[in-house]
Design a protein around this nucleic acid. Structure first.
Lengths: 142, 142
DNA sequence: GAATCATATTTGCATATACAAATAAACTTC
DNA sequence: GAAGTTTATTTGTATATGCAAATATGATTC
């Protein structure tokens, strides 16, 4: 069924989550190429861009809770893509060589995902909607 | 951090999910009053409105997979709010008396949630955005 | 410098959701 | 009417995420 045919088509909760799940699915397909979930991939990109970034910084950038960040990093460690070094109460996260070597493919995925939804949703429409949705998110409490 | 300040502010995956999580949080607070998650509540409303509705119908209305629907119903059974009756290969779901008695409160929650986000996001803006987001979701593959 | 407070991170636990496989019933076709 | 196919539902398992508590470090205040 289409979202706009559901009895809850007027409900923000329903529509925001339905849209999120569908976008997530699309993203998962793209990132499967490098055997990562979208969250792991975006976190890894931040780590490559800024080696030594801390969980707090990642949490802020990704709008995910610190505990979720810990779990994401753990998985990247398991995959040999990131390392953690504890310095006092701080933790710094670094990309491994393997991760750096993967960068071109990661960027390719970013592009192909963007192209993917732009083709489906329309390029201008997507840009506009992302902006508007970000503005909505800004207004809501963390 | 605001969504529009993140490095991924232009990414549909990132923004759609961040918005979804924030809306979900708001919805959870509302529905806590009746000790239900938003998904359980909306499912229960469908069951009250159409006693005997089948998991397939619920799955279509809620845009959730059948297995998720099964799990949601199980929980409502545990709470004494719904019952299932298996007839051949079909399953029909019914509200209990307890659920029917709860209806006014459920409707109150629907209203207070809508008011809640309308106040935060602006009434017209919310309406327009829900419509636009539904249109986006429609275009994406299930 | 000891005691308190604040900050960063992790851990234990709970939840919602999905996928794939299993089950079971109904339908088709010959 | 038997065999194969389709449909409806459930089950087993995996995932991402969050909250609250635990831990550990650093900062402040007296």
């Amino acid at each position: 069924m289409k979202a706009s045919e559901s009895k809850y088509k007027h409900c923000m909760y329903f529509i925001a989550n339905a849209l999120g799940r569908r976008i997530e699915k699309l993203a998962m397909e793209t990132w499967k190429q490098v055997d990562l979930s979208p969250s792991h991939a975006y976190l890894l990109l931040l780590v490559i861009e800024e080696p030594g970034i801390q969980p707090t910084g990642l949490s802020e950038q990704l709008l995910l809770t610190p505990s979720t960040i810990t779990r994401l990093i753990e998985k990247l460690e398991d995959k040999g893509l990131a390392t953690r070094s504890t310095e006092g109460k701080l933790t710094k996260v670094y990309p491994t060589e393997k991760a750096k070597a993967l960068l071109p493919k990661l960027l390719e995925c970013v592009n192909s995902f963007t192209e993917n939804y732009s083709n489906i949703l329309g390029k201008d429409e997507s840009l506009r909607m992302v902006k508007n949705m970000a503005a909505l998110a800004d207004k809501l409490p963390e």
